[in-house]
Design a protein around this nucleic acid. Structure first.
Lengths: 209, 209
DNA sequence: CGCTAATCTAGAACAAGTTTCAGACTTGAT
DNA sequence: ATCAAGTCTGAAACTTGTTCTAGATTAGCG
């Protein structure tokens, strides 16, 4: 019944496995998306151009990614994966958990500053996403949570710590938006991140057993 | 040189004052915008429909609000003003500043729950806004800050307190988005708000003179 | 009152996201 | 090797935000 030979790389979860050629198409599309985004940001990622750049018909592009927002959120997933790998290599050196988280987020922030247009496209897509993109956005959120917990050095966090992490993520996203739309300086974002990271300290009132 | 008699109601700031008829048009437009938004949210606010509902030509609509996002952010300003007035009447009763802020935000949240589609339209517009809408978005931000400071009962906050308020605003916006896109429950939003509000307590280490 | 500049209207036109469709191509199974 | 089902392509069509234009109205001034 299906077409193209199936090759389960074990990468994605519940989605039907993709052919090699399909995997290649998907990769070309994501690459074109990131490339166009790196230029003009959200607006520069035009579906017709993405299709052309990745040598795929417009209809096919929409089969792979049912909307522009889906495409950009997937692009973000992709970039986040790289980022997580990079961050893992050089763990933050701070004394306390809150310092390490702040350091990690600032490192990520610096990476985004190198490609501000790409950051714009991804973050705008993320916050503009409606319910139809929830699963994908959730995936991004989980990935972000993992990065933060990594920086904290936790394997099984308490509910209070998870709450703090949630709030940190909120602040992270919103601060990025204010920066991208020119309403907050880099310095201001830094302060906001450092401020919210203090919440972590509240989850460890003092020494533990 | 100009047309229509000028009548400075003293409302807006630097913009040239509007005629009565112009003020009326503006009001009709904002009303139509809120009405349409209350139905289907962001997508239901279609510029042609807004123009028709408010008995104004499409070109005129664009003269008053240069884009859909501008229109919706202005709609939010309008709603926020009502909200602030309403909140002022019944000040929160909590003991500590953080309790009062959390209570106020939850009250606002409940108001938004009554018109979830309207909330969707306004919040999505707010976070999707690009640089061209910065002044208007900033205005909304200032209004929100004022509401929070009101709840804290402060007239001149310290830098540390302002930082906390900024982070609270970040969390507020982002938590709203996760709720609107169905990725967080009402209970979860409550927890996030209460969590972030604890930051306020950090700005008052202990009793003061 | 009558003039002039600005504003408003109606409607066409344009741009980019999304949908649709017929036909060519692939794939896995027989 | 052949076939049925699913996939891809190319192109047109549709939707909605945004821009443009020509002519009708309106406001303030002399």
């Amino acid at each position: 019944m299906p077409a193209e030979a199936k090759v389960d790389i074990g990468a994605r979860s519940a989605t039907p496995p993709l052919t090699e050629r399909q995997e290649a198409r998907r990769r070309r599309i994501l690459h074109a998306s990131a490339q166009l985004a790196s230029r003009g940001g959200f607006d520069a990622v035009q579906m017709r151009e993405v299709a052309e750049s990745s040598q795929v018909a417009l209809g096919t592009l929409y089969r792979y990614f049912p909307s522009k927002v889906h495409l950009l959120v997937a692009t973000m997933q992709d970039q986040l994966q790289h980022m997580h790998g990079t961050l893992r290599k050089k763990p933050p050196a701070g004394e306390t958990a809150s310092e390490r988280v702040a350091e990690t987020l600032m490192r990520a922030f610096r990476a985004l500053q190198r490609e501000p247009h790409l950051a714009d496209a991804m973050v705008r897509a993320l916050t503009f996403a409606d319910r139809s993109v929830s699963p994908e956005v959730d995936q991004v959120s989980r990935q972000t949570t993992a990065i933060i917990l990594d920086a904290m050095g936790l394997t099984d966090p308490t509910p209070a710590q998870l709450s703090a992490v949630r709030v940190i993520e909120h602040t992270w996203h919103s601060a990025l938006i204010t920066w991208l739309s020119g309403r907050a300086s880099i310095a201001q974002v830094k302060i906001d991140i450092e401020t919210v990271c203090r919440l972590i300290d509240l989850t460890e009132p003092d020494g533990k057993p």
